[in-house]
Write a protein that binds this DNA or RNA. Sequence first.
DNA 1: CTGAAAGCGCTTACAG
DNA 2: CTGAAAGCGCTTACAG
Lengths: 359, 359
Amino acid sequence: MVESGIGAVADVLADGQDASLRVTIKDVAAAAGVSISTASKALNERGRMSGETRERIQAVAQKMGFRPNAMARALVGQRSFTLGLLTNDTYGRFTLPIAAGLSVAMADRGVSVFLCAIDDDPERVRSNIEAMEDKRVDGLVVSGKRVDRVLPVDLPTVHMPVVYVNAACPDGAIGFVPDDEGGAYAAVSHLVELGRRRIAHITGPRSFSAVGLREQGWERALSEAALPCFEEALSGEWSERFGYEAGQRFVTMASADRPDAVFCGNDQIARGFIDALTLSGIRVPQDIAVVGFDNWEIFAAATRPPLTTVDMALKELGRQAGITLLDLIDGKPVEAGQRRLACRLMVRESCGASISSSD
Amino acid sequence: MVESGIGAVADVLADGQDASLRVTIKDVAAAAGVSISTASKALNERGRMSGETRERIQAVAQKMGFRPNAMARALVGQRSFTLGLLTNDTYGRFTLPIAAGLSVAMADRGVSVFLCAIDDDPERVRSNIEAMEDKRVDGLVVSGKRVDRVLPVDLPTVHMPVVYVNAACPDGAIGFVPDDEGGAYAAVSHLVELGRRRIAHITGPRSFSAVGLREQGWERALSEAALPCFEEALSGEWSERFGYEAGQRFVTMASADRPDAVFCGNDQIARGFIDALTLSGIRVPQDIAVVGFDNWEIFAAATRPPLTTVDMALKELGRQAGITLLDLIDGKPVEAGQRRLACRLMVRESCGASISSSD
DNA sequence: CTGAAAGCGCTTACAG
DNA sequence: CTGAAAGCGCTTACAG
């Protein structure tokens, strides 16, 4: 470790304003010449009192920079206005947008969220959940990297409401996942509308439920258009490499036998696939149109040409999960089950849509 | 929004264990037949008392599933064992590893971290900081997407210790950034050791301080080896596109005039650069060795051939920042200034090192 | 060795 | 309309 900026011990607290010197409601009450309970009522807009005193007390509090201690409040109110977010996706594709969507929506409602990064070590999961219980969070959102895998979380013992996002949702629980089937349907329908007729599908491992759902969306769009599937869906890894290999396979076909469009199960596959075509002089989208899935910007925008793809609205997923969790905490009735939130087709260039028709 | 799993209202609380029925220290004391203060002392291993009663009380607490209310504890202890993480990088390249490293290290020490996702809207920043003050976090880590940009955080008014990560560090404050110069030096030295002599540099916009530092590392490694710089560093966008264009430029050179190695300012540039070479039949690493910067797995591992690159040890950065913040909170003296944490060279194939020599 | 009291910073009935 | 009292769940001196 290299050090720079040698010298003085850090001056961490400005103006000599020590955290322990923070102004309390007692200070406000004294300064305003009223009792603590009156101050409390004035500040919280409850009880009846002359508007004049209420305003005076509020002005004093404002001037003194009074900020109520949320922990003291929580202690009496039996409500901490905090949430825990448990996630085992430190890889980051899904967690960050979900966490950001959740965090922002919650911040707007005065609730803060604890981030608990857990690898798949059950011991760590256990201790993180205990920490959340000790801190008396009002609820938990559990987020994963696969829609069909549960986290190693022993839920029956958890004393608070839980909502699942992008993870398997146990019976009787509440979960939010992207609508894979609907997103795939939208993508393929878009290709059909653009006049493509021989639409293939290249996707990830069959062990992922998302693979099955996206395949169903592909089939539904084709059958509604009375088009046949172009061969069976090609299943492999979720990787550029697999997309590349799949592309090479099409390259060797007689051009008349080739598909005129390919719906890829994710953006990485689409990227590898397009690279393979480009290397062999097959033009995208002119010869073969391509649509991906994920809208992982860093891939989708960098692909040559830029990739049309399905956006899973992950921020919205996090937002909805948080709002629903708040409802649960408030005791509102919430129906059990898994919600599938709509995806959005992000039209760029690889599908062959002209700018003007890209609704 | 599609709904599935219709029916019963969610059964969110198992075993009828309501949060409000949680066992308190009063319950434990009663069950053990001692006073609350005795129970407290027994549980906290302080004061003197017979080992027998201490163990009995602990056993009772254990059996009842007693978990002390952290908020009550915080209220008296003037210490919440919580931290706030403020970040404006929702794009996610840097935040997630940093957050994960921080969160895990803190969890091991019993402290939990609030995630505050802020776009660059100053109003949101303000309200998030207020929320952290209200919640009485013990300290703040401020994390950004650029080492040379400060967040729009009005720090003089913050009542607690702050540490900066991957963001500009104001005078007198404490910050952690990756050692860009050292990482670049390691990368280029590695190329030199592998026998490369004409080593070029393609990098991002000069407005980034990281660009200047990485360039200095390149120059130092070359000058120590008594090698000249291969032309001036080529500066452009942090994008695949720019890397690709730079690659095309080298392609048109007479092969004798070309560099035999290129150090790229980030992995995206390296990726685009390699793609351009490959398309023109120039072999990597045989003809031109390539090293990147970032170790963004999703690029580095998918590049053909897999990319040798500099890892910035972001998790470690988050971990160190957290530990230092804890020291600050504990009142330990901490030197002001910015720390540059060592980077680590991740050797794959694009540099031409044989597996065995990839230390 | 053990317990009664005070207090952390707030809110909420309940009397005046 | 206002304030004294009790209490949220703990810990920490301070007496016994």
